[in-house]
Simulated scan of single mutants.
Amino acid sequence: MEALLNKSVRLVRGVKTDSVRYLFDKIVWNNRLIGIKGARGTGKTTLLLQRLKALSLPPHQATYWTLDDLYFTDSGLADTARLFYNRGGRILFLDEVHKYPAWSQHIKNLYDEYDDLQIIFTGSSIIDIAKEEVDLSRRALMYTLYGMSYREYMNFKYRSELPVLSFGEIISGTQVWQDKFPEKFRPLEYFAEYLQQGYYPFSLEDEEGFATRLQQVIRIIVEYDMAQLSGFDIKNAQKLLQLLYILSANVPFKPNISELARKSHIHRNTINEYLHFLEEAQLIRLVYPAGISVSTLQKPEKIFLNNSNLAFALAPNATDKGNLRETFFASQMAVHHKISLPKQGDFTINDTYVFEIGGKQKGRKQIEGMEHAFVVVDDVDFPALHIPLWVFGMLY
């Protein structure tokens, strides 16, 4: 165990705390069992290490372990955690829990056995703790970490000091929120850059190698992380990748299940289930008509990529500006709001507000006469009549 503690010390020493993700200040850190889900590459590990560093506790009291460490191939988590506790340990940060067999059972046992041991764990976005062998949903306070907003990207990379805006402020008009921005702020200066490489925090570490690394992350998600899903046959990983590439070249995609099955060589009876897997992995976004209840086996009305960065990684020669606009809008809104498809317009938010997305010449023709309907326009800074697209990147 000393090796684990020493490794934790080295990792904490190397992490920077000058900038933290939006979720850091929203987590109720004093809860005894906290779970953080998120797609690979969104910064869950950094979040844990930053919290551990902020505690300023010695490693025998608070430590970080990743459960894909070779140490745990021949040393059990429960026994190691008990040894840690008996030596004075009180806070345990566990990373990549989905890599460890029966992880939910081990965490439940530790939670029940030691009422003064705090456990904070992270896992893939594909985890559904209510469907694990042991349901932790009544014990754990769960959060989801999404990729960076446009605001976070600007603040982290360019040291901007951009505000968080509420949805209500945005739809109230530019006069409500424009003065909150620095006078010299040019909102479109780095917007195209964000669309291509700003969603994943690791772009800040390696800008030149970002596209290659993102492609590798996609393969790891499909070929390894999805092996943890109940009902997913890992032998079909290659077919799932093929399905993802088909979708990426055609988004926004109105699914024809028979055609998708033919092109991907996946049986048509399982296509909807596999689409659901890809959405859980935060690789695509399934959008359904407004006002309906959604089941896993239901065919979506439209399919988008989860975020605009994926479009450049998966289909760089097929990126379409209209699709990038809609993908960006959906990725930023989905963090705190429900998205669906209206009969008129592009998106319905929270079953009430309708948005039509377009270029700077976009008018209200598609939503004329509709209540609670707004036009969102790209390629403009602070338009007088409509809402600029970039401002939806300030929601978190």
Rank of each mutant, 00 (worst) to 15 (best):
M1P: 01
M1T: 11
L5P: 04
L11P: 00
L11M: 07
R13D: 12
D18E: 13
D18N: 14
R21P: 13
V28Q: 11
N31C: 08
L33Y: 03
I36P: 07
K37T: 13
R40E: 10
G43A: 10
T45K: 03
L47F: 10
R51D: 00
L55E: 12
P59G: 11
Q61M: 14
A62M: 02
T63H: 04
L67I: 05
D68I: 04
L70V: 08
Y71Q: 06
S75D: 08
S75C: 09
L77Y: 12
F84Q: 13
G88N: 09
F93Q: 05
L94Q: 09
V97K: 07
N109S: 09
T122L: 10
S124C: 04
I127F: 08
D128N: 15
D128S: 11
I129Q: 13
E133I: 06
D135S: 12
D135H: 04
D135G: 10
R138D: 05
R139T: 05
A140F: 00
T144Y: 04
Y146M: 07
Y150H: 06
Y153V: 00
M154V: 00
S166W: 03
I170W: 01
I170Q: 01
T174P: 06
W177M: 03
W177Q: 03
D179T: 07
F185V: 02
A192W: 02
P201D: 10
P201I: 01
S203W: 01
L204C: 11
E205I: 09
V217Y: 09
I218R: 02
R219P: 01
R219Q: 14
Y224Q: 15
Y224P: 01
D225F: 06
F232N: 13
L241C: 10
L241F: 07
Q242M: 06
L247Q: 08
F253Q: 11
I257H: 03
S258W: 00
L260H: 05
A261G: 13
R268V: 11
T270I: 13
I271D: 04
E273C: 01
Y274G: 04
E280Y: 03
A281F: 06
P289G: 05
A290K: 01
Q298T: 10
E301M: 04
L305V: 04
N309I: 02
L310Y: 04
A313E: 09
A313Q: 05
N317P: 00
A318Y: 14
D320F: 03
G322I: 05
G322F: 05
N323Q: 11
T327Q: 01
S331D: 12
Q332M: 15
V335K: 15
K338G: 07
P342R: 13
K343C: 00
Q344E: 14
F347L: 06
F347M: 06
T348S: 13
T348R: 14
D351K: 07
T352F: 00
Y353D: 14
F355A: 09
G359N: 15
G359M: 08
Q361W: 03
I367R: 00
G369I: 01
H372C: 06
V375G: 07
P383G: 10
P383V: 10
H386W: 09
I387W: 01
I387H: 04
V391T: 15
F392V: 07
F392I: 04
M394P: 05
